[in-house]
Simulated scan of single mutants.
Amino acid sequence: MTSPTINYLALAEQIKSWGQSLGFNKVGITNVNLSDHEDNLAKWLANNYHGDMHYMESHGLMRARPAELAPGALRVISVRLDYLPTDAKFAQTLQNKDKAYVSRYALGRDYHKLMRKRLKKLGQQIQDYCAELNYRPFVDSAPILERPLAEKAGLGWVGKHSLLLSKEAGSWFFIGELLVDIPLPCDQPVSENCGKCVACIKICPTNAIVEPYVVDARRCISYLTIELKEAIPLEFRPLMGNRIYGCDDCQLICPWNQYAQLSAEQDFQARHKLDQASLIELFMWNETEFLSNTEGSPIRRIGHQQWLRNIAVALGNADYSNTIVEALNQQLTIASDLVKEHINWALKQQMIKKSEITIAVNERLNARLIRSVEKGLPRDA
């Protein structure tokens, strides 16, 4: 058992100082009690809002019981790490249908290893201070409700889009946890500051936020492009636009993100020009190129086939182009059955748009012809 002579209040302040020295933008501490969230978790699972993410249900209510995950844990040290790149090119990319939109958290290197390594260092520093400490770091890597814990630790509040929000940082940040078995003093939660705002609910392209604070993952573009391994439902394909990996719409519209902090982490800056790459350019990557260009990136986890599937949908949503049709047909000859289905859908969309262009051109020509004829007629005809 840890020595009772330890000044835990002073240690808590030291932990926050160590955390900031390691690059974390904020550190908070809370207990492991999440019993208030068990009913909502059970209801969310019962509604099958987790879709094919079976890992969400495999541990039942353990997600709301951190002490079962790490026996003996008394406190959770929750950390925030800002990731917004210096030149995010939000609207510039989303409004250009020929460009690929990648969720801004995935433009750089995978945050999991970086944060876990730093959390482990933080644990070691605390252990040097009180040798009998047991600790366990988590970064989106275990059945634990991270956002409710961060909310209790005072890092922010859970917004209506279900993401954590902070007055001084918006929502463009990662969170991680260090579970420890020492009785550190707990921080106080901050008040909820969404008020009557429902901008995130209204902006969602697929209406995935089914009610405030509740997201049906099966409708979410992030789920459809990352977690879903099968064919993307037809109803959602036109709504995805050029989003090929994740979606940031609910964050982009949030008023609190005017206070978002740019990340000083070089690892979170865009790699391989993914913030401005064309859809066709990315669509032509073979598997070797995909694996090479996504090494160390969170994108790699979806694999080459899902990558092509997602881009095929985006190409179908782009304006008509002979170049796009040629690229789709070229990939069609070597594509897997999953990708072929989406390429054929995209080709159909391109042909529809070509027909619409033809009709529009003919209508303009006819209107011009009529005007020409009318100008040639006598004024009193």
Rank of each mutant, 00 (worst) to 15 (best):
I311F: 01
E230Q: 15
R80A: 12
E38T: 15
K97E: 12
I302Y: 02
L291C: 11
L119I: 10
L11S: 13
S321L: 14
M284D: 05
S35W: 03
A153R: 10
V313Y: 13
E295S: 10
G195M: 09
M284I: 01
C250W: 04
P238T: 01
T5Y: 06
L81H: 09
D39R: 07
D87P: 00
N362L: 14
R75S: 10
C204P: 11
H37K: 13
N362Y: 06
L81Q: 10
N25E: 12
T358H: 07
E341G: 08
L178T: 08
Q95P: 00
P238G: 08
I280A: 06
M53W: 12
S58D: 13
P66Q: 05
G376Y: 01
W307Y: 14
L133N: 10
Q276R: 15
E192L: 06
S292M: 13
K43L: 06
G156F: 02
N96C: 09
G376Q: 10
E68S: 08
G60N: 01
L61D: 07
R271G: 01
L84C: 07
L84P: 09
I357C: 09
S336P: 04
V27W: 03
N25D: 15
K99D: 01
S222M: 14
F268Y: 11
E295R: 13
Q95S: 05
L315N: 04
V76D: 01
I302H: 02
Q269A: 06
Q258F: 11
M351E: 15
D52A: 10
N242C: 08
Q20T: 13
A91G: 02
Y135K: 11
W285Q: 09
R65D: 05
I175W: 12
R104K: 08
D87H: 15
P378D: 14
N329E: 15
